[in-house]
């Protein structure tokens, strides 16, 4: 029983010996052009001399001039003016013993910090969800994979929410499926440099959001006079400008009325009596979610047919 207990207690002490050497720093993230001094400390029980060790970077042996023996078991190497990482999985800085065996390795992630994401655009097609897209900064993702986090804050609530469904509308996009009908989010994109500690924050307020909606529903056409029709749509919960287009039944050419403004009804004049017309409406919201930007035109509504009396 005593022997068993002794062995059990010793296990955690023995475990570190499984690694013949340790490289410091381990898997660092670095900026292009910077320098790095790394050390390889060999386990003293292996009876290896620091002077017998050598370094490789991506399989290529580094020149001994860049080495420095710090003590009997520790060898450093200095890399100046680092280039961007050769592969996404990081450059391999490896410490070898004299016979070529690998003692330890460290992955170097060399690149540029992420730039502020640009062209953030958010849209809602049904007032119940929100999808946002953005583009990487002007330099793009230079050598380093960037994680993006889209945050939004709901009106009347101070708590930040984080978008969860990424890439639903492309590589740089996120979808917020919750019911946002009465809430006002503001875009808030964040791109931490992966996997290092540098991060970059950019935010966009709701005034920069671009919003669209589903096309107007319940479009009705009613006769108001011999040669006039009045078109009315339902009243929306937000302000919008509208466009109407109409065509005769046997023509594919639509005539657009784009001076409807924010009126939810419009009179079409000059129609031919007894002719069937198809009428469609689309809207472009503004002020929705607090946005001050021009919105995106919705799709056209389903066509509604009507005929002025003879």
């Amino acid at each position: 029983m005593i022997t068993f207990l002794f062995l059990w207690l010793c296990l955690p002490l023995v475990e570190p010996l499984a690694y013949p050497a340790v490289i410091t720093p381990q898997d660092p993230t670095l900026v292009i052009g910077s320098s790095l001094t790394a050390t390889c400390s060999v386990n003293s029980d292996l009876h290896l001399k620091a002077g017998d060790l050598y370094w490789t970077l991506n399989g290529r042996r580094l020149p001994p001039e860049s080495y420095k023996v710090l003590n009997g078991t520790t060898l450093s190497v200095t890399l100046a003016n680092l280039n961007g990482s050769r592969q996404q999985s990081g450059d391999n800085l490896v410490c070898h013993s004299r016979d070529g065996s690998i003692l330890a390795g460290s992955c170097l992630y060399v690149g540029l910090p992420p730039e502020k994401p640009v062209n953030i655009t958010c849209w809602s097609k049904n007032m119940k969800d929100l999808t946002c897209k953005w583009a990487p900064g002007t330099e793009g993702e230079t050598y380093l994979h960037t994680n993006y986090t889209l945050k939004y804050k709901l009106r009347w609530y101070g708590r930040d929410n984080t978008c969860q469904e990424y890439r639903t509308a492309g590589q740089y996009s996120c979808h917020i499926p919750k019911d946002l009908a009465l809430l006002t989010p503001y875009g808030h994109a964040r791109s931490p440099l992966y996997p290092g500690p540098l991060m970059h924050l950019c935010s966009v307020t709701s005034s920069l959001l671009t919003v669209t909606t589903d096309p107007p529903a319940d479009v009705t056409v009613s006769r108001v006079g011999d040669l006039e029709d009045q078109l009315s749509g339902r009243r929306f919960l937000f302000q919008a400008k509208y466009q109407i287009q109409y065509r005769v039944e046997d023509s594919s050419e639509w005539k657009v009325v784009d001076d409807v403004g924010n009126q939810t009804s419009c009179r079409l004049a000059g129609l031919r009596p007894g002719t069937v017309y198809f009428v469609q409406v689309r809207c472009n919201p503004f002020g929705i979610y607090g946005s001050k930007k021009a919105g995106i035109w919705s799709d056209w509504s389903n066509p509604t047919a009507a005929s002025p009396p003879r």
């Binding site: 013949p20 991506n58 399989g59 592969q87 996404q88 391999n92 070529g100 065996s101 690998i102």
Partner: peptide, 16 residues
Amino acid sequence: VEKQGLDRTICLDSVD
């Protein structure tokens, strides 16, 4: 090996 930047002949004796 290409994506990890490794050499196929690399010694893997230390991998358990």
